[in-house]
Simulated scan of single mutants.
Amino acid sequence: MQLYNTLSAKERAALIGEAGQERLTISFYKYAHIGNPRLFRNHLFVRWNELDVLGRIYVAHEGINAQLSVPADNFEAFKDHLDSISFLEGVRLNIAIEQDNLSFLKLKVKVRKKIVADGLNDASFDVTDKGVHVNAEAFNALIDDPETILVDMRNHYESEIGHFKNAITPDVDTFRDSLDSIENDLADHKEDKKLVMYCTGGIRCEKASAYYKYKGFKQVYQLEGGIIDYARQVEAGKLENKFLGKNFVFDHRRSERITDDVIAHCHQCGKPCDTHVNCANEACHLLFIQCESCARQMDDCCSKGCKEIHNLPYEEQKRLRRGKGASNKIFKKGRSPVLKFKS
Rank of each mutant, 00 (worst) to 15 (best):
T174G: 02
E183D: 15
M197A: 01
A210Q: 08
I203L: 03
V196P: 06
K165Y: 14
H163C: 05
C199Q: 04
D192H: 02
D171N: 15
G201D: 04
S181H: 10
K165M: 03
M197R: 11
N166T: 07
E160C: 13
D180R: 14
R176G: 03
K215F: 03
F164A: 08
I203H: 10
L179Q: 09
S159T: 08
K190G: 12
H163V: 09
S181D: 15
K218H: 02
E158G: 05
A167Y: 00
G202D: 12
N166Q: 13
E183T: 12
L179F: 08
H163F: 12
K215S: 01
K165D: 05
E206H: 13
D173P: 09
K215L: 04
Y157I: 12
K207S: 06
M197I: 06
D192T: 14
H163W: 04
V172P: 09
D185W: 03
A208F: 08
C199A: 11
C199R: 07
K190L: 00
G162A: 12
C205H: 08
Y211C: 15
C199F: 00
M197H: 07
E183M: 12
Q222C: 04
S209A: 12
G216W: 00
I182A: 03
S178K: 02
F217H: 10
A187D: 14
I182V: 15
S159C: 08
Q219I: 00
Y221T: 00
V196E: 11
K213V: 01
I168P: 04
D177H: 14
D180S: 14
K218F: 01
I182E: 01
L179M: 03
E183I: 03
D185H: 08
N184R: 15
A167L: 08
A167Q: 11
V196F: 05
D177P: 12
